[in-house]
Design a protein around this nucleic acid. Structure first.
Lengths: 103, 103
DNA sequence: CTTTTGTGTAAGTCATTACTTACCGTAAGT
DNA sequence: ACTTACGGTAAGTAATGACTTACACAAAAG
């Protein structure tokens, strides 16, 4: 369920670009929308999805709302990768692991 | 573009389950379909998507087609995570890194 | 050779989604 | 107070997607 949210959030190119735009510094909705080819409400909707995936944080500052990267979402992703091979490590998984170390 | 394919492929729960079902050993379409709540053609279609995302391999063996995990897709994912912070590391990214090491 | 098994693909349907414009409330500037 | 700036939400639309059944074809079995 959480995986679905995170993968789904990053699956859309526009949404991924918005997410990446926040990497260097927190930004307001307008600041983000100015660099994106979609309307301002569209950006708001994307930010909502990113928020539900625990990929961004919001902080209301005066008139504006500053969005920033939140670690939690990406950590879910990393744990998926880390757990993929370790869970119930069978013969085939071991074989793959061997390939990973070899190549 | 590649990111879109991989994230999109793993965003669907059914497709993710199919992918995970291949972790322990290669399986035929029927073997997979037997454990999944969707029809056999649906599984075929999911496998096609996973293939295009470089997440699975196919090998025709006699009558059947054995699907197996392919490393490439997940490696794309891992590199996305790894490059996320390191690319154009700004002040804010450094701050996040500090948080990651602190918490 | 005929039948069965295994799988991909076509076509159609229903739900989801990414987008737009229009509208509303709230905070800041004059 | 009035106006402008900021941003969330509603409503509608066009595209995408996940699923089904029906069909086609190759390999295995009889």
């Amino acid at each position: 369920m959480t995986y679905t949210k995170v993968f789904g959030a990053l699956a859309d190119p526009t949404r991924r670009h918005i997410f990446e735009a926040l990497r260097d510094e927190p930004k307001s909705v307008q600041q983000i929308a100015a660099t994106q080819p979609v309307s301002r409400p569209a950006v708001s909707q994307h930010l909502k999805v990113l928020q539900q995936a625990h990929l961004v944080n919001v902080e209301a500052v005066g008139n504006r709302r500053l969005y920033s990267i939140k670690r939690e979402g990406l950590e879910v992703l990393r744990s998926y990768l880390d757990n993929f091979w370790s869970d119930a490590l069978g013969a085939y998984a071991a074989e793959i692991t061997r390939q990973m170390n070899t190549n």
